[in-house]
Design a protein around this nucleic acid. Structure first.
Lengths: 242, 242
DNA sequence: ACCTGAACACCGTTCAAGT
DNA sequence: ACCTGAACACCGTTCAAGT
């Protein structure tokens, strides 16, 4: 009853930049990047196209704003959680991005696009800063900060992008039901490849079917952290021969 | 004179799938993904839109075909080159991808899109197989093949995508002139960030200006290889606690 | 078998006009 | 200041018609 009252009280709550971005994310989640059209948006918000341009600008800017919003939310660490070790902090940030992309599959492409742009846009900046602080906390020598942070961020993004395979709006709570089917299909496809062209893929088809995405992802992060720990100290920029 | 004869002999060499893909790559190189339109393509090839659909299918399929073609060429190792060590082979493959993206900037997004699709498409398959063989040659225990290959491929793709920043058709021969300006601008932008929000980015602004893309990329690969070498041997899939 | 190109449905964006 | 929505230029795709 309160609902009906609130609904009829105002035909629509006043339009705002935030409400437009929110609606855009919903469209993107439901139908992917091509699902976000100005017309679909104006219909959902019961407004005209000019209103979108007034509040947020072009479709491209709206896409950027949606990406910024979702990434910022994923990066915001729960302050109630114990600080733990730098390694754990890194895992929290990385899994935050990982889960955000699983939930919003369109983010994978959008992240890639943002990455190839200038490195002083909020998304790239926020990810680098989050990871970089933990690299520093890890005791990595100052001269290796940039190399270590770059490598870790790039691994996280590559892995995260490749893992956005579950389809739009993957279930967060339910276990990986569809995922199991997906892995089975992929494993079978690999096993049926030409043995002369793809001997290696056939050899790992079984491992890939049994793997768990998140465990695999965390194993990769540990792997990179091991590499970072073993980085030879900075000695000028010499010695890269060949 | 032979040229003129051949030119007038037939108003245009017969259309083919290959010639269409070739023209598509040229358009993409010149103007990015949005530069590839069916109309621009038909104009350049002096044909009708139906011909494109007859030979290659939709615009999306053409984009895939262009990606496949360029990636396959980048992956094809020069057989004249000495086999070297597995490590060197990995560097050759990785730099091949790195340079391909520097030359064809649109590849970055396209690669990300292909990655998020099914893992039995030629691009993903080819990259995994190339890298995986060297992981095997490296003597990595069989149980770690999938983990090691995934981590390395994902790092390579993340790094490679992020490095496609130079702009369309970066000079292959000329030294990184524009690149230096780009790094300067980024470094300055980082130095002017809010010290409270981005202390780490300000701290590494200098390192980032001085870094060399390819050296940094190779350092990252070495780092991941170090991590792979130190992977604990597979012991079933237990022990991932927490 | 291979190609033409008009026609169609659908885009993003603008902007005079309203309140 | 904020919004409307018709109009415009531009898409990808189809398909009857040609050769």
């Amino acid at each position: 009853m309160a609902m009906r009252a609130r609904q009829s009280q105002r035909r629509r709550q006043t339009l705002s930049r935030e409400s437009i971005i929110e609606a855009a994310v919903e469209l993107l989640d439901a139908a992917g990047e091509s699902g976000l059209t100005v017309r679909a948006l104006t219909e959902r918000l019961a407004t005209g196209s000019g209103a979108i341009y007034w509040h947020v600008g072009t479709r491209g800017e709206l896409l950027d704003a949606a990406t910024d919003t979702v990434i910022a939310a994923a990066l915001a660490t729960d302050p109630a959680q114990a600080p733990d070790t730098p390694q754990d902090e890194i895992r929290v940030v990385a899994l935050g991005l990982f889960d955000a992309i699983a939930e919003h599959q369109w983010l994978a492409t959008q992240l890639a696009i943002q990455l190839t742009r200038t490195p002083w846009e909020p998304v790239t900046l926020g990810i680098f800063e989050s990871i970089g602080r933990q690299i520093r906390a890890l005791g990595v020598p100052r001269g290796n900060w940039f190399t270590a942070t770059s490598a870790l961020v790039q691994y996280i993004l590559g892995a995260t992008i490749q893992n956005a395979q579950i389809g739009p709006n993957a279930p967060l709570v339910a276990p990986d039901v569809d995922r199991a089917e997906f892995l089975d299909a992929a494993s079978i496809a690999w096993q049926e490849l030409d043995p002369d062209k793809y001997p290696f893929m056939r050899a790992i088809a079984d491992q890939m079917r049994q793997h768990n995405d998140r465990e695999q992802f965390l194993a990769g992060i540990d792997l990179v952290l091991t590499g970072i720990t073993n980085l030879h100290p900075p000695t000028g920029q010499a010695h890269i021969a060949e």
